[in-house]
Amino acid sequence: MQIKEFCLAHEFDMSKCAVNLGGGSFTMTELKTSPVEFLNLAEDDFERGGLSALVNATTNAKRAIVCQLDQLLISFGYPSLKWNVPKKIERLHALGLLAPSLLRKVVNMRNILEHEYKAPDLQSVEESLDVASLFVMSASAMFIPFDDVLEFSLPETSDGDASVTHIIAGLYREPRGVFYTVYAYEPGDFSGRCVGQCEVPAGHMLFEAMVKLSASLMLRYKVDQALDNFEKTYAEL
C-alpha cells in the first residue's frame, strides 16, 4: 500500500501533526576508500609545496568531496556512482544534507584545471581544502549517529475518537534497499497497538522530505522550512 493510501485508510494526515525525533542508530555505509583518506592525501600534498603538489592537493580535495557525496547518497539508497557531480549535489540538497554553493567552488576549480590547464594559486587551494575539510567533518558528525526515527502525533485538541493517534517512521537499510517503514498506532498507553504499516522507499518524494525533516530537527536549522516542505510534499502525493 502506498503511503497516502495508508494514511487515508487510517484517517491520519501526517502533515497536520506534531513531529519529534525518536532517536536512532543509522550510520553511513563504509567505502573502500573513505573521504577522510582523500582529505589526508590532499593535506599531505599541500604541505609538500610546489606546482605539482598544489595540483594534486586540488584533485584530492575534490575527490574527498565527491567521495563524501557518494557515501551520503549510497547510505540513503541512491545509485550515485553512476551520476555526475551536479546530480549528486542536487539529490543531497533535496535530502537537506548540504548547502551546495561552497562545494561548487571546489568542483569548478578542478574543472578549470582539467579543461583550461590553469594552475591553481596557493590561496585557492587553501580555500578548497578548508571547504573539503568542513564538509567531510560535518557530514561525519551528523552520523554519530543519524536520528532515524520520526514520530508524528495528533494534537491534543483533535478528535478523541480517532482510531490512530500517532505514526512512527523508522529508517532502515537492508540488502534490498533503504526505506522508511511507517507504523500506525491506535490510542493506548505508551505506543498503543500497531494496526498497520507500509514502506516509503529511497527516491520517493516523501522519503526525501522525511530525511530533510530529520536533518533539520537534529541541527535545529531551518526547521520551519523543512516542516513546510514536508507539508507541501505530502499534499502533492
Rank of each mutant, 00 (worst) to 15 (best):
A9Y: 03
R48Q: 11
H10K: 12
A119E: 15
K88G: 01
K118I: 12
K4S: 11
E30C: 00
N111I: 01
E126G: 04
V106Q: 02
W83C: 10
Q123C: 05
V19D: 05
A57P: 06
R63V: 00
Q123S: 14
D13S: 15
S34Y: 01
K118Q: 15
V66K: 08
R63I: 03
L73P: 07
G23F: 01
T27K: 13
R104K: 14
S101L: 10
Q71F: 00
S80R: 03
P86C: 07
M28V: 11
P100D: 12
I112S: 13
S75P: 06
N40G: 11
D70F: 01
M28I: 11
E11L: 14
N60Q: 14
S25Q: 07
H115D: 00
V36C: 07
L41W: 12
S75G: 11
G49N: 03
L97F: 02
A57G: 06
V85E: 12
T58R: 10
G24F: 00
L51V: 13
K16T: 14
N20F: 00
A99C: 06
L21K: 08
K62L: 08
R63Y: 05
G77Y: 02
K82Q: 12
L92V: 03
R63D: 08
K62C: 12
A61F: 06
N20W: 01
